[in-house]
């Protein structure tokens, strides 16, 4: 089931990737070629197999509830594209 141009546009929106018109056909072809490769999985019998998310299947270690961080706003905001009064700025959000 090959992806159509509109599918690709939908995925690109989901991933917030601005693609230009000229690239769309190439990207659609490339994605279909990759999906063709991964679709080979469908032939594998995986009945009754538990999915494996982590190779070692260890369990989560827990951290003590302690405050270990101090204010480093100045350093962290020095690399930010736009800030004002300690806030990160983005184009106006309408709710």
């Amino acid at each position: 089931m090959a992806l159509q141009r509109c599918d690709v546009e939908k995925i690109a929106h989901l991933a917030r990737l601005g693609l230009n018109e000229a690239e769309l056909p190439h990207i659609t072809d490339a994605l279909n070629s990759i999906l063709g490769l991964v679709d080979q999985m469908q032939a594998v019998d995986t009945d009754g197999i538990e999915p494996l998310a982590h190779p070692l299947e260890a369990s989560q270690r827990l951290r003590a509830d302690q405050v270990t961080e101090r204010n480093q706003r100045e350093a962290y905001q020095a690399i930010a594209p736009a800030t004002e009064n300690g806030l990160y700025l983005v184009p106006k959000v309408i709710e």
Binding site: V38, M41, Q42, V44, T46, I49, E50, P51, L52, A53, P55
Partner: peptide, 14 residues
Amino acid sequence: AYYLKAQKIRRLIK
């Protein structure tokens, strides 16, 4: 069909 299937194959490989 994709993610879960791949994780199952991952176990087969392990």
